[in-house]
């Protein structure tokens, strides 16, 4: 599977990365190089193999731990907002979104 320039633009758009016109070709070549190399995976027979999701080395690891329903965080609006590139009052501010 090799990417055409339209697909490269579509992926960049999905990923919200602005690609200048002159970058598209180079990106396309690089991605196709990587994807071509990855393609060798198709040769591995994987019929009936249970996919491994997550990084646990123990396949039989039980389910996840659950925490108690207690309020332990919050009340730190200043800290939450301290790094904001733009804030107005106690809100983060972004260019107006039209719905």
């Amino acid at each position: 599977m090799s990417l055409d320039t339209a697909m490269v633009r579509r992926i960049a758009s999905l990923a919200r990365i602005r690609l200048e016109e002159e970058e598209v070709g180079r990106m396309q070549a690089e991605l196709n190089g990587i994807l071509g190399w990855i393609e060798q995976l198709q040769a591995v027979p994987t019929e009936g193999v249970e996919p491994m999701a997550g990084g646990s080395p123990l396949p039989a690891a039980g389910g996840m731990r659950m925490r108690a329903d207690e309020v332990t965080e919050g009340g730190i609006a200043e800290k939450v907002l301290a790094n904001a590139p733009d804030r107005i009052g106690d809100y983060f501010a972004v260019p107006k979104v039209v719905e």
Binding site: M27, L31, I34, A53
Partner: peptide, 29 residues
């Protein structure tokens, strides 16, 4: 950027099974 692009592609509709799911299975192997 390259890796975000690759990652976005292998998860996208129509390619997930061929790439991501396949990789998860090989990972299991």
């Amino acid at each position: 950027k390259r890796r975000i692009m690759i990652g976005t592609y292998v998860l996208s509709a129509g390619y997930y099974d061929a790439y991501y799911l396949k990789a998860q299975k090989v990972r299991a192997l």
